[in-house]
């Protein structure tokens, strides 16, 4: 957790800066609004954390979020009775996409960067084909309440964070991070490396489903709803001090990374800096964070030379 201290300091600094620029932020409604906005990204970051700490990537979550929202709108089509069955279906879709990503990566040995890049393109293509570019249908009130009502969003976020922390303390989480740290040593200790990685991808898929449910209510139905979310999630995780390549970093820090990123966007907005700059900011952050982490890497790779 020591590595995570800087991100909490940065986050605290940003929150203070926001409060100074906009005192409304300190009122319950203002802060709840911030939490509501941050919840989808924080959940995605938690899902992405599992994949990254195991030594892989998941680039497909942005497209998956879009798929979830578009599918929900079309199947529900305003019918309240469809809300719960569709919610269940969305969870299944998320887990299934994760399962496929995981199996292709571990069993067919396709690097996850490529697997999930492919999945991202396939999912976006499928959405476009299915909707013809303009999503049809509408979400029900019962569906939209999760993303719209701050209380629901915060509750779901809390459950997700708690679940993520508990998972990382459990045997699953410890063996997952071991596999990301040293796959060979983990295998030689009996760890089912492939299986824990597949689970990690499924958790990432699940997080995309939940994020999609929140964003559908919060942002509405569009074919762009999940755009570039995969990069935001990866940026958040890296910002939290989690090392790309696996084996190091804490899930709470990754979630704090999501909060920091959202706080940064909020602050830029308050100062009237265009949203278009968000991409550039993310780019700088991700390179800087990885470079800072990379400075320590070489010393760890040394193996004792034979005499």
């Amino acid at each position: 957790m020591k590595r995570a201290i800087p991100i909490f300091l940065v986050l605290a600094g940003l929150l203070v800066a926001i409060a100074v620029a906009n005192p409304y932020f300190l009122e319950p409604a203002g802060f709840l609004g911030f939490l509501k906005r941050v919840a989808p990204l924080a959940i995605l970051a938690a899902g992405q954390y599992f994949v990254i700490v195991s030594g892989e990537f998941d680039l497909s979550v942005g497209s998956l979020v879009t798929v979830e929202v578009v599918v929900a709108a079309r199947l529900i089509d305003g019918d309240e009775a469809m809300t719960w069955p569709v919610l269940a279906l969305l969870i299944v879709i998320g887990l299934l996409v994760g399962l496929v990503n995981g199996l292709v990566t571990t069993k067919l040995r396709v690097p996850s960067f490529i697997t999930t890049l492919g999945a991202m393109l396939i999912l976006s293509g499928a959405v476009f084909l299915w909707t013809g570019g303009a999503p049809r249908g509408a979400l029900s009130q019962g569906f939209r309440v999760f993303g719209r009502e701050g209380v629901w969003a915060v509750l779901i976020l809390l459950v997700a964070v708690t679940a993520a922390v508990l998972l990382m303390r459990a045997d699953f989480g410890r063996t997952l991070i071991a596999a990301g740290d040293n796959e060979r040593a983990a295998r030689l200790s009996g760890v089912r490396v492939d299986r824990v990685r597949v689970f990690a991808f499924m958790l990432s898929g699940l997080s995309a489903a939940v994020a999609g449910i929140l964003l559908g209510g919060f942002a509405g139905v569009s074919a762009q709803v999940g755009q570039s979310l995969e990069f935001q999630a990866i940026t958040a995780v890296v910002l939290g001090g989690v090392v790309l390549g696996g084996g190091r970093g804490h899930v709470v820090a990754a979630i704090a990374g999501a909060f920091t990123l959202e706080a940064l966007f909020t602050l830029l907005n308050l100062h009237g800096i265009s949203g278009a700059l968000e991409y550039a900011v993310q780019g700088v952050i991700i390179i800087a964070a990885v470079a800072a982490g990379g400075l320590r890497l070489p010393a760890l790779r040394l193996s004792p030379s034979k005499v």
Binding site: R174, T175, A178, D181, A185, A186, S189, V191, S303
Partner: peptide
């Protein structure tokens, strides 16, 4: 290379087989 997960704690390493 083959025995330890170096970035993890003594505890995590000691429990690796049990957990696996």
């Amino acid at each position: 290379a083959e025995g330890l997960v170096l970035n993890q704690s003594v505890r995590d390493n000691a429990l690796l087989v049990t957990r696996a």
